[in-house]
Design a binder for these strands. Structure first.
Lengths: 117, 117
DNA sequence: TCATGAACCCACCATAAGGTAACCACCCAC
DNA sequence: GTGGGTGGTTACCTTATGGTGGGTTCATGA
């Protein structure tokens, strides 16, 4: 992500956080509630495990998602969820999503990316 | 930009349009009104002519900016301006900019990226 | 006449982002 | 005791993106 240290405005910085190829898809998937790693992978067709891992790590270090690892008795169970910051980011993303739906994929099948679940 | 042909949601597509390293800066600069090429270059420190040209071409082919070349008598005078679509994109970008300002560069000097000029 | 500015184009290059594929430890079911 | 699922890691490899440094045309200014 080339994480820059100087931004000239807020969008600049926000795009840097959200600009990865699969980032918004991850945010969108997590918007419905916490997900396990495998659920995310299956829910985002085309993403590889490596890329999903690294994107999740970046989102985690940006404070957007929250990783919870529970080794309950037997298997390890890792759950990813949006932090409050992630929820607010999703809300801020909503108008852009509406714009994209309206102007970019007019009439094509598309899902809704609303802010609140 | 790898211009994909299938998008799973609107944000996905919008990020693809706006995801270049300097795209939002260009949009932001054009938000104050039409600019000539040299003005843009001077107004966005760090961007090279080649990258500025190619990003402007992409934004133009996406219908975001409008390029007007006027050879008025002597010199060629090229002016770039936002199309109505570009104006609406900027408006849709505003909440994301506000989010970035608030959460990413808290307290640092930053300019405002409002929708309407 | 030479230099400078505008608005590029072009060839090449460096890096970073993303993709492929293999491997790992752990546990469970068969 | 072998295979499958979970949740990864690691080492490459490819491609896209952006950067460097030149060249270009026309006009103006000194």
């Amino acid at each position: 992500m080339t994480r820059r240290d100087t931004y000239v405005c807020g969008i600049d910085a926000a795009i840097d956080v959200v600009g990865g190829k699969w980032k918004v898809l991850i945010l969108w998937a997590l918007n419905d509630g916490p997900c396990r790693f495998g659920e995310l992978r299956r829910g985002i067709p085309g993403v590889t495990e490596k890329v999903l891992t690294s994107h999740l790590r970046e989102l985690e270090s940006d404070g957007i998602v929250f990783r919870e690892e529970a080794v309950e008795g037997a298997v390890r169970r890792v759950t990813y969820a949006l932090t409050p910051l992630g929820v607010s980011l999703n809300a801020a993303l909503a108008p852009l999503g509406a714009w994209g739906r309206e102007h970019l994929l007019n009439g094509r099948a598309s899902h809704d990316h609303a802010a609140a679940s």
